[in-house]
């Protein structure tokens, strides 16, 4: 008999199983939304391209950098906490949450710009999906900020691992959503 038996498939999975169930569920929801967006585009590719030209790509690209960097800080926080560097971990989590706020501010400016142009979800099917997908994602950013601040307060390593995993899911959804909605001409 082996002294070190191989871990089971579930034991191999890092972090909390329920968090992974949530991550997969969210990916399926957003994945279905993105696929539906491109499926509806089939009926009016020119209209979708024209509608997309009203979006601010540079602002959204900057937001990608903001979220990627925020995710990096959340991942570093877990690393530092496992090394018992509690202060560094807490500061990294608060900084990650602050970048989440930056993301929301830029998103708010983007929505305000659309409103000033008279663009609503009824303007074109493109904008219905735009508001639905980016709005639902922004809602997750708000939840993620609260979770990051909560685990910065209750900073047990397991808590930080779960909080950071939620934040990485928000990051993961954005890196798929951004190119489909903003970049695919």
């Amino acid at each position: 008999m082996s002294a070190n038996p191989q871990p089971s498939l579930l034991e191999e999975l890092p972090g909390d199983l329920m968090m992974w169930v949530l991550i997969v569920s969210e990916l399926l929801i957003f994945g279905a939304g993105l696929a539906a967006f491109l499926a509806v585009r089939l009926s009016d590719p020119a209209g979708f391209a024209e509608a997309q030209s009203h979006l601010h790509r540079t602002g959204a690209a900057f937001n990608t950098i903001v979220l990627i960097t925020s995710g990096y800080l959340a991942a570093k926080a877990l690393h530092w906490r496992t090394l018992a560097k509690r202060t560094a971990a807490r500061m990294a989590l608060v900084a990650a949450a602050a970048l989440g706020v930056v993301f929301l501010v830029i998103k708010g400016v983007e929505y305000a710009d659309k409103a000033a142009q008279g663009i609503t979800y009824e303007t074109h099917p493109f904008f219905m999906f735009y508001y639905l997908l980016t709005g639902f994602h922004a809602f997750h950013v708000v939840a993620g900020i609260l979770v990051l601040l909560l685990v910065a307060w209750r900073d047990a390593p397991d808590n930080i691992e779960i909080g950071a995993a939620f934040w990485h899911m928000v990051d993961l959804v954005w890196v798929l959503l951004f190119p489909v909605v903003y970049l695919l001409a």
Partner: peptide
Amino acid sequence: YLGLADAPSW
């Protein structure tokens, strides 16, 4: 970020 590098099957 999510650590799947340590869980090759997943």
